[in-house]
Design a protein around this nucleic acid. Sequence first.
DNA 1: ATCGATGTCGGGAACGATTGCGTAAAAAAA
DNA 2: TTTTTTTACGCAATCGTTCCCGACATCGAT
Lengths: 347, 347
Amino acid sequence: MKFEAVTIKDIAKVLGLSTSTVSRALRDSYEISEETKQLVLNYAKEINYRPNPIALSLKEKRSRSIGVIVSEIANSFFSQAINGIESIANSKGYNVIITQSLENYEREVNNMQFLSSRSIDGCLISVSTETKDFSHISDLYNKGLPIVCFDRIIDGIDTYKVIADNFQGAYDATTHLIKNGFKRIAILSNSEYLSITKERLAGYKKALEDNKIKIDESLFQQCYHGGMIYEEVEQAMNNLMQLKHRPDAIFASADKLTTNFMRYCKTKKIHIPKDIAVIGFSNLDLTDLLSPSLSVVRQPAFEMGKVAADLLIKMIESKRPITDFSNIVLPAQIFERESSVHSRTKK
Amino acid sequence: MKFEAVTIKDIAKVLGLSTSTVSRALRDSYEISEETKQLVLNYAKEINYRPNPIALSLKEKRSRSIGVIVSEIANSFFSQAINGIESIANSKGYNVIITQSLENYEREVNNMQFLSSRSIDGCLISVSTETKDFSHISDLYNKGLPIVCFDRIIDGIDTYKVIADNFQGAYDATTHLIKNGFKRIAILSNSEYLSITKERLAGYKKALEDNKIKIDESLFQQCYHGGMIYEEVEQAMNNLMQLKHRPDAIFASADKLTTNFMRYCKTKKIHIPKDIAVIGFSNLDLTDLLSPSLSVVRQPAFEMGKVAADLLIKMIESKRPITDFSNIVLPAQIFERESSVHSRTKK
DNA sequence: ATCGATGTCGGGAACGATTGCGTAAAAAAA
DNA sequence: TTTTTTTACGCAATCGTTCCCGACATCGAT
């Protein structure tokens, strides 16, 4: 089953012209007389002619499609970022091919391989929690494939990188908890390999320092899979709750960490924020409906997707190699809700 | 900026063979001697040769990519369905190009146009709430483009259609509310054009009939945009709450209707389930964390995506036109939680 | 009347891969 | 040895489009 499209040859045959003439007429070449142009243009419109993008790709050695690798599209942050990517890409005539690593290194390598074999013009990537070797990315980058990193960026390659202000977001979130009267603030961290983990941990530490709170490493808990697996959050929380000096607040530095923390509290009948308060990084759009409503640091996901796609297409379409790259940092926004209210300050 | 791939010509030149021989060697043709094959194969592996998919597409008149049109990828149901679609498509060597209508008819038409101009081999579609004219779909279908409908199916074309058992899901949900002691059960419906609206409304009505409850049309509320806009849910709920005989339970027949209903109750300080109970269609995976936890009918989204993609690829690869189509109906599952517990039955 | 300039258009190669057909050399059959 | 068959490979067309050349015709200038 297939459907045959109209080609330039069909037009040429019907109008008694050569394909070259038709092609030039459609492209509005100066070499073609006005009447021939009109003839071709009218007929082309009549039979709804569309140039075959595959033939064009072969000729121009570009596919007009870009690849995207994220950890999971069901994650609000990424689905919003993808919306931003597509809005820019489509407006510039590019297809977007989306793939997910599901936080799995092998799958990420496979996706990269798959995308390059599909001859994409460029790639946007936010690496998986497991990724510590970047050769699958840098190899292709060094061969000339334009790549832009976003969210979870890497050091391996020198290119544009688009991130939220993770340091400031974490700083603000932690400061918010401190100002609300919490003393022992723990942090649930993502995989240590990730840039966002380091940035957010640094923001957390700086906020504690600036408020003269001693840093206690027993309050740092890492979840290698970023909370994808409930059990690792459970384990991390068990570690914290067994401490003789328990934390009174949690800074959950990723989306899944935040929701699985809440799931943990619900299961263990731990009351938020009375027993323990929380603020987390999250782009969910129903944090207001959770019980209690969730205080969050929200990243400008849509905007990040737009900026990243824009830069990638700029790289793709640039005549000469770009060398003066920069990191684009967009502000994160903090939303204060019930989950981070101190019991004594509650009405 | 571009990166040059290795072609069959490069191999031919280096090994002193013709491109035909190289091609045949790579395809393991019987016409090529064993030693030549090994020579070519080894060298191809050495320089990491990958056939150019674009050249193949041009030759074979197929792009090995399929298009998907959904209303919104940030919607849990669709992101899960897309996961299912991609798992099948990628395993069979197909790309997936995802587009969103955002419940807008014009955008859907544009997406369809865009996809067909990108010469996809087939298309999966779940129409927008606004779509009542199907010519943008049937036109392409009649020209021979394989299309499979899923979730929100249409009558306009005779093809495979994959849906959840909306009738049974709605029937079970309504019955559940009745069994829990609720007497006046209202329904929040999606756009009347949608198949799912009709099916779910029918299931709801049948459950009432089977339980000898009189059907009251003042309890039917429609939200044309499926709850995408908060205000329409607000309006619908205001209508219901102004009734002299208010409903004591709501069956929210779509994801966004459900969450915006909860948002409405939170805003208006209406207690769920004491003042009004609710069960809704939803594929969110944090319904257990909401306040109160949400009773839902859950669709097998991932499975639906897999089945739909499988059928589409079957259509694409079929030698002769398929005529004996069928509707595939997968069971929906009901999860009973706090939001639908009757106050008198509460502990 | 001849020449160059200009305006219009067609021929054909190219992009990368596949494939039907032709053919030389080697092997087998006569 | 001659004829036939088999083996192993190359040539060239093809997919849809673009674009470099070359080929005319017309026209003004000399």
